[in-house]
């Protein structure tokens, strides 16, 4: 398998684009015509050929550009990557997990040679070759979590499990849906989800926590989450809200199809062996509405979901102000025909 990596940007001139194949494999998050929170977990054990679920850590055409964007964000604000001191072992676990998965799943792109603790890592797309001693942080240019997540798409939270709870004690967060790692680091599961409306009363977080605490080694799980973003911007952080916030008000009926993106998170959950911590990758996929409606089922369904979403959720997800524009646009692609179950195109 070969991947052609896009030459594109996620800021300033926003040259990001999805190829026809990327549109086809987009992880559309709605399996029915309405949406409410749920603990929609399933085993992360592969998926249809070519889908984003097929491999454990999906690498796609945006890989190189996303890693370049992450490096820019980290240069501007190093606090986007933090690890409390007791989480270094979990960082090594994560590094091992990602390196072994990528080397097995993409042997033409990544290679890992191990001789005891002496490791040799080759990342061809990014032109990286690194020899290091496993469990000796001094032999890497960054801490183990930062090192490997500078080479892996998606945000990462690494959760410590203790006192019957999960604690967000480490993370690499440069493409988040408006939450701050620097602020939330050290919080438990209920605290960092505190700002989410409704779900607490529904008992969603109690059920999710119970599920996550029992995730076992070798049996990862996944779910999809979503929000809406104006422009293909990865760094929609609260830190830079005053910089990207004005762009949210630039939508017009003429540009909404091109500038408004559905943002989908493929979240997965992995028990780490040495530390017993839980790795929580949050992989972000972006698609412009005008590309999304090229799949008729998705256009119809997204229209119905957004039209009928409770106001509180639109507010929380940050697009209440643009909802009328978005729904009007999508209405043009909804002929009222029934949609098939499931998330895949017909």
């Amino acid at each position: 398998m070969t991947i052609r990596f896009n030459e594109e940007t996620f800021r300033d001139d926003y040259t990001f684009y999805n190829s026809p194949q990327a549109i086809r494999r987009f992880p559309f998050p709605f399996d029915r015509d309405d949406y409410m929170y749920s603990v929609n977990m399933e085993p992360h054990a592969g998926g249809p050929e070519g889908s984003v679920f097929e491999r454990r850590f999906d690498v796609d055409e945006h890989y190189v550009a996303e890693m370049r964007d992450r490096a820019i964000t980290l240069d501007e604000d190093p606090l986007r990557c933090q690890s409390l001191p007791h989480m270094e072992l979990a960082g090594w676990d994560l590094l091992e997990l990602i390196m072994t998965c990528k080397a097995e799943d993409y042997p033409d792109l990544f290679e890992l040679r191990r001789d005891g603790d002496q490791w040799h890592w080759i990342n061809r797309p990014l032109g990286i070759e690194q020899r290091f001693t496993f469990l000796d942080a001094g032999t890497l240019p960054h801490g183990p979590m930062e090192y490997i997540t500078r080479q892996t798409q998606g945000d990462f939270a690494v959760l410590d499990q203790r006192e019957g709870n999960l604690w967000m004690d480490a993370g690499m967060v440069t493409s988040q849906a408006d939450w701050s790692l620097d602020f939330d680091i050290g919080m438990n599961f209920f605290e960092w989800h505190a700002p989410v409306p409704k779900a607490h009363e529904m008992g969603i977080f109690q059920r999710a926590l119970k599920f996550l605490m029992n995730v076992q080694q070798g049996a990862p799980s996944r779910r999809l989450n979503w929000t809406m973003t104006v422009n293909p911007r990865l760094d929609t952080s609260p830190e830079n809200y005053h910089k990207w916030g004005p762009e949210k008000r630039e939508l017009t009926p003429e540009n909404v199809g091109a500038k408004q993106y559905l943002r989908v998170e493929l979240q997965s959950f992995w028990r780490l062996p040495r530390s017993n911590a839980l790795a929580f990758p949050i992989r972000c996929y972006l698609i412009a509405l005008e590309d999304l409606v090229s799949v008729p089922k998705w256009g119809r369904r997204l229209h119905r979901v957004l039209r009928d979403l409770p106001d509180e959720l639109a507010e929380y997800k940050g697009f209440a102000v643009n909802r009328p524009l978005i729904v009007d646009y999508l209405a043009r692609f909804d002929d009222g025909a029934p949609t098939s179950p499931g998330i895949y195109p017909d």
Binding site: P238, Y241, P246, R249
Partner: peptide, 11 residues
């Protein structure tokens, strides 16, 4: 507590 820019979208 967290303080967030109140006029980010509408300076």
């Amino acid at each position: 507590f967290q303080g967030v820019c109140v006029d980010a979208e509408t300076p």
